[in-house]
Design a binder for these strands. Structure first.
Length: 563
RNA sequence: GCGGCCGUCGUCUAGCCUGGACUAGGACGUCAGCCUUCCAAGCUGAUGAUCCCGGGUUCAAAUCCCGGCGGCCGCACCA
């Protein structure tokens, strides 16, 4: 048995036993891809979310703010965003061996034609007229059907309208972009973050919390003006180093290269400098989860989502297997433009010039009285025709000296030159999206920090994401020690620490339990405490103890947990 | 959907092939008590399983047969 499998097995065992996570709806047999997070798990998960908020939002609070939008999303929104169409894969099943294939991919492969975007019946037609057979068993293929990864529902009673569970929180951000923009600083760059649940009806969810059907996502949509000077706070990612494997390197089988974010920005490997910044921030976050072996891997055009111009997945290496913990996508103006097209609403941003530009403009006026004098009733009908034209059409007719009803309009036009002041222009911001799956962070942190020491399970979580900051134990179940311990619990709780208290069972058992859920420190009150007011502090990873006077306990905890 | 493997106390499992003394055994856990001056210690007791569900064969089914449900792994798919 490999160590990875062994580890995963032990971690899932601990998860069940200690309340980290387990399959949902177990008493009904369970449903693949749905998981409950237990009491200890929720503590860890909440701290991971807090860590993300700290690093992505709080440290960038001059750039980023957070919103919350609904899970239920009307069909029109996801139609516009491309999810209704692109989340639906055309599939075809072999009637003989029952293998399922992507119908469009199969057609493209066999006929060397572009089959993308073809309708289901078109694909069925192509497959039957070209007698395409199952590539595995040469069996007859059935009709092309679709598989949609969106969870569908109905909004409202009666027939209602179709709705979907959001597959990403991003669309709620795009659709509310204008409001957030207007209600805040009305300037770019602007990051809008959202943490929330999403649903994706995966064909086959696997690997515990790695591929779920209903999970929590932490996303940032970072809006910026491509023509504006980038003013990037590199000092916030100064200490970060990121490993990058781009497409070329991947094709040539090379190893990832290491960069500082600002170096990557000018390396030509990223579509925009901001990409490098947010990759740096993401890297910082992953390291805070205690994960050291991570690198960014560029996705090929086929692998990318429909909205993405460039995507880097943040891969985490756990005992030799790479798992995607995050993706950073350059979405361009895809989403805002799509929603503008669909709704006709203006989602552009007015970009003010530093100094207003003056533009010389020709204003064309038609001398209507001259026309009527020259042609009478015919002139009136010409005027009517001209008035129906747009400015541009009229300009074209005048400048190219074209005739309307055999009259050269230019001869009856007056061209006035005027100056117009333009103080800015309307642009559609571009978007960079770093997004993290919370449960993946949670799960990978667990696997990553899991150790076995003397056949005991230890979760060496970084203190920041541990479920409790410390445990307090009376060494023995004696009233004076219990009283003193509870006093101590009060003291540290009042200082804001999360404390785990336990008095039953042998001390060794309690230490073991604390280690297993990753509590970094354990304070033990022993008989000596009653004499000299000192306690021992035990380290989860080394099992070493130091004796500290209770008066110094808060200071010592501060050093041990944050120092 | 397909293929392989699997489904017994909270957990891990014995038993299944070869049906009967299985009233389903153990270990761990949990709880209570005793003991205990620092690492899952010891002792005592308690707790806990309609053997995944339904049907069939049989005098008799956890065990054999059929169907279903669910899980894991692989395939395909995957933001």
């Amino acid at each position: 048995m490999s160590t990875v499998e062994d580890k995963v097995e032990r971690v899932t065992g601990v998860a069940l036993k200690r309340g980290l996570f387990w399959p949902s709806f177990e008493i009904y047999g369970g449903v693949a891809g749905l998981y409950d997070i237990g009491p200890v798990g929720v503590r860890i998960k909440n701290r991971i979310v807090k860590l993300w908020r700290d690093i992505v939002i709080r440290e960038n609070d001059d750039l980023v703010m957070e919103v919350e939008t609904p899970i239920i999303t009307p069909e029109a929104v996801l139609k516009a965003s491309g999810h209704v169409d692109h989340f639906t894969d055309p599939v075809v099943e072999c009637m003989q061996c029952h293998r399922v294939f992507r119908a469009d991919h199969l057609v493209e492969e066999k006929l060397k034609i572009n089959a993308e975007g073809l309708a289901v019946n078109e694909l069925t037609q192509i497959i039957s007229t070209n007698k395409i057979k199952c590539p595995y068993c040469d069996g007859e293929l059935g009709p092309v059907t679709t598989f949609n990864l969106l969870f569908k529902t109905i909004i409202g009673p009666y027939s209602g309208s179709t709705g979907y569970m959001r597959p990403e929180t991003a669309q709620g951000i795009f659709t509310s972009f204008k409001r957030v923009f207007e209600s805040s600083r009305e300037s770019l760059p602007l990051g809008i973050a959202q943490i929330g649940r999403v649903g994706r009806n995966e064909i086959s969810p696997r690997q515990n919390l790695i591929r779920m059907r209903d999970f929590t996502i932490m996303e940032l949509e970072f809006f910026f003006d491509t023509s504006q000077k980038r003013n990037i706070p590199w000092e916030r990612v100064e200490k970060v180093k990121i490993k990058v494997l781009d497409l070329d390197m991947k094709r040539q089988g090379e190893k990832p290269n290491e960069y500082k974010p600002h170096e990557l920005a000018t390396s030509g490997k990223v579509l925009d400098e901001w990409m490098a910044y947010w990759m740096g921030v993401s890297q910082k976050f992953v390291e805070k989860l205690g994960i050291k072996n991570s690198y960014f891997e560029e996705k090929s055009p086929e692998e990318r989502a429909h909205y993405s111009k460039q995507t880097f997945d943040l891969m985490v290496d756990i005992n030799g297997t790479s798992v995607e913990i995050s993706g950073i996508a350059y979405r361009g103006d895809y989403d805002l433009s799509a929603h503008m097209n669909a709704t006709g609403k203006d989602l552009t941003v007015f970009k003010r010039y530093d100094t207003p530009k003056t533009i010389k403009k020709d204003i064309i006026l038609i001398d209507k009285s001259k026309l009527i004098k020259a042609f009478g009733e015919r002139g009136k009908s010409i005027i009517e025709k001209l008035s129906r034209m747009t400015k541009d059409e009229l300009e074209g007719i005048v400048l190219s000296r074209k005739a309307v009803d055999d009259v050269i309009i230019a001869e009856y036009a007056i061209i006035n030159q005027t100056e117009e002041k333009v103080s800015g222009e309307r642009i559609v911001p571009h978007v960079i999206e770093p997004s993290f799956g919370v449960e993946r962070c949670f799960y990978l942190s667990l696997i990553n920090s899991f150790r076995i020491k003397e056949n005991r399970n230890i979760l060496s979580l970084p203190p920041e994401i541990a479920p409790f900051d410390l445990a307090v134990f009376p060494l023995l179940e004696r009233q004076p020690l219990i009283d003193k311990s509870k006093e101590l619990v009060r003291l540290v709780k009042d200082s804001g620490y999360e404390v785990f208290y336990d008095e039953s069972g042998s001390i060794g058992k309690r230490y073991a339990r604390a280690d297993e859920i990753g509590i970094p420190l354990a304070i033990t009150v022993d008989p000596q405490t009653l004499d000299d007011n000192t306690v021992t502090i035990r380290n989860r990873d080394t099992w070493e103890q130091v004796r500290v006077h209770v008066n110094n306990i808060l200071m010592t905890l501060g050093e041990l947990l944050h120092g």
